[in-house]
């Protein structure tokens, strides 16, 4: 039974946690890909930026003696999301819009987003330094334990993890209603589907672009902050988080927000289960069969150091076998 609890903690829950983070990131990337038609390489650093803003705000409030029922970094989340969304729009205006207007090819925008990511990286490291930081200030990190009958270990979920599940769920539901019910949400889908017809129809592309950055930037800030709350704020996440998010986007199908959510969890679970030590689950089976076979000490499919290979291999396989992704996205 203990082994099963271990599997729930290190496999199922861990996969759901990282899957949620990837999903939140991938929604933004897929919307930007669908509407602005380029792979947004600055998304990873946008997440870090959001977390960094949360850190600064929370640190300032903590220093002012502010306290509340939740960790401060969680309570400032709405402000963080708004600020990050605003910065995203600013970045778009300064760096991407002029290129779009001059009729540059999509790939030039990809290059520009790499320039932006380097700028963000530089600024974040200049102000935050290279070391990682805690987003918990005065308050303890609550841990919830669920007892399992017949096991002396417990299923454990920390406060930020629980919060992550809740905000992910809320975001997904809100996004669903926004895209399927609201005028602007439908317009976003229309632009993603057929930009020239959308223009002919009188849909203002710039409004849609702005909405895209608000959602993408806001969710990136959310994902970055939640990740930093769960682990810690690392300024050098960048490409290491970007690759699985791109993989999630493409696995889900480009331009498909629901696909991005599914893709996020697929990639998150693939990664978690690939580095999971399966001997833990084999040991009880070996005991029942009177040790008919020997269980190696560690039986992970992929060594932890090579974790990044998992999203990459997924990405390559999907490009070979189903470039449209599971939700039949666009092939650009």
């Amino acid at each position: 039974m203990n082994e099963l609890v271990f599997f729930i903690n290190k496999g199922i829950l861990a996969g759901a946690i990282i899957g949620s983070i990837y999903a939140l990131g991938a929604i933004g990337v897929t919307l930007i890909f669908g509407i602005l038609r380029f792979a947004h390489f600055a998304h990873g650093d946008m997440m870090t930026l959001g977390a960094f803003i949360a850190y600064v705000l929370a640190a300032a409030l903590a220093a002012a003696g502010f306290a509340g029922p939740l960790p401060i970094a969680m309570m400032v989340l709405p402000i963080v999301m708004i600020l990050t969304a605003g910065i995203s729009i600013g970045i778009d205006r300064t760096f991407y819009q002029p290129l779009r207007r001059s009729g540059a090819k999509g790939i030039v925008l990809v290059m520009a987003s790499i320039g932006v990511t380097l700028m963000l990286q530089g600024l974040i490291r200049l102000f935050a330094g290279p070391s990682s930081r805690e987003l918990y200030f005065n308050e303890p990190k609550d841990i919830f334990r669920i007892e399992v009958p017949g096991a002396n270990q417990m299923i454990t979920v920390t406060e930020p993890q629980l919060a992550l599940f809740i905000v992910t769920l809320i975001s997904v539901i809100a996004l669903h209603y926004f895209l399927s019910r609201s005028r602007l949400g439908k317009a976003m889908r229309a632009v993603s589907d057929n930009p020239s017809l959308a223009q002919v129809t009188g849909i203002s592309i710039e409004t849609v672009v702005r909405a895209t950055w608000i959602i993408g930037g806001g969710l990136a800030a959310l994902a970055g902050t939640m990740l930093a709350l769960d682990v810690s704020l690392k300024p050098d996440l960048s490409f290491n988080i970007l690759l699985p998010i791109f993989a999630a986007t493409i696995v889900g199908g480009i331009g498909q927000p629901y696909g991005a959510i599914a893709g996020g969890f697929v990639v998150g679970y693939a990664e978690t289960l690939a580095v999971f030590n399966w001997s833990v689950l084999l040991r009880p089976i070996a005991r029942w069969t009177d040790n008919a076979f020997e269980v190696p000490a560690s039986l992970a499919i992929v060594p932890t150091d090579y974790k990044l290979m998992v999203p990459f291999v997924l990405l390559i396989l999907i490009l070979i076998y189903r470039p449209t992704g599971i939700f039949k996205g666009r092939v650009l």
């Binding site: 439908k186 229309a190 589907d193 057929n194 959308a198 592309i205």
Partner: peptide
Amino acid sequence: PEKLAAHKIAMVPQEHNVFATLTVHENLEM
């Protein structure tokens, strides 16, 4: 082009003239 709707001019292009992934109703709403 996006300002012409205000003048009450509409256009039906030759190709790709519907939003394929939107429902019929949503196409009309757009």
